[in-house]
Computed example of a mutant assay.
Amino acid sequence: MELIRVARSRAATAAAAVLTAALLAGCTAQASEPTAGPSVPRETAGSGTSPTADPTASPTASPSSAPSTGAPSPTASASASASATKKPQTHRTPPPVVVIARGSSSAKVRELQARLKQLGLFGRIPTGYYGDVTATAVRAFQSRHKLPVSGSVTDVTWAKLRSVTRQPTRAAMYPPASNAVAKLDPRCMTGRVLCISKTSRTLAWVVGGTVVSAMDVRFGSQYTPTREGTFSVFAKSRNHVSTIYHTPMPYAMFFSGGQAVHYSADFAARGYAGASHGCVNVRDRGRIAALFDQVRIGDKVVVYW
């Protein structure tokens, strides 16, 4: 009996040892397991893929997919502002240039007058002097062709005039003397008359109402004006020299005190840039030399506008 108890006791001890060993092994395995919770997927190095989104999470819109509000971006606003403040470039037309000035005297003025005469705008013969009569004709031309009406010949006016007229001949620019004065003063229509017009700046030698010869003349300045009216030649001096100014006065024909019709070398050289001391200056020596031989003492002189 005693042996049976001992055997049973040993068997119980062995079973207890086995059970204890099994329990210890189970705790070790449990302790090595990861803490319970949601699993975190691992990323593959260099793959560039994002972790899988949680299907339960609400979707979040990316910045690129946000709806447009219609407001311009800062860059666009700055560009629009710069464009708005930038002034547009404008091309200004240069002002017209005067190519033939009023008060001038030249061959080009004769050409101007001859071209205006072709159009019926200049009723006198070309004198080469750009005075009031020529300016009036220029204004009429400018008005006709819808150009700025100034009475001055600008480059635009000159180009237009040349385009509608032909090149005048020398005969048209320097016509015969009989055509020198378009309209004679009534006092010049009878007898032998030195008919002198301040308007056209011409002297016409008129015999019996017919113009025999004509020539350009100039007059005194505002301080020594040439007298106007009806006079007569009271003295002639072919090689006269002024006793007051000590200057030559060839072919002098006196008609009012010390005032005379005579040749002027200064007029021939400078034209209308100068003036006399009251005399009627002639610049064509050949014409006044011929006139001097024809005029007689007592012949009438008429000076008028």
Rank of each mutant, 00 (worst) to 15 (best):
R285V: 08
V261E: 02
L23C: 08
T210R: 12
F141R: 06
A172G: 03
A235G: 04
S213Y: 05
D284P: 02
P225C: 11
A14I: 14
T85A: 14
P175V: 12
Y272K: 01
A290Y: 07
T90D: 00
T230I: 12
R218H: 04
R192V: 15
S73N: 06
S256Q: 14
S264N: 04
V211M: 03
P63G: 07
A66I: 05
S237C: 02
T224I: 07
P55S: 11
A101C: 01
V211P: 00
A31K: 09
V98P: 00
C188V: 12
S197K: 01
Y304C: 05
T69F: 03
P95R: 11
K117P: 00
S232M: 03
V149Q: 01
A14S: 11
R287F: 02
R227P: 03
V98A: 03
F292C: 07
A84W: 09
I297L: 14
A159E: 14
H246F: 12
P95M: 08
V303Y: 02
G271T: 06
L291C: 08
A135L: 05
T190S: 13
Q294I: 06
L194T: 06
A29W: 08
H277S: 11
A36P: 05
T127R: 04
T69R: 03
V303L: 08
V133P: 00
I100R: 01
H240W: 13
I297T: 13
V261D: 01
Y130N: 02
Q113K: 02
A84T: 13
K236Y: 05
T13Y: 08
T13H: 09
P67G: 08
Y263K: 07
G191C: 05
S143L: 12
P250S: 11
R110V: 09
A66V: 07
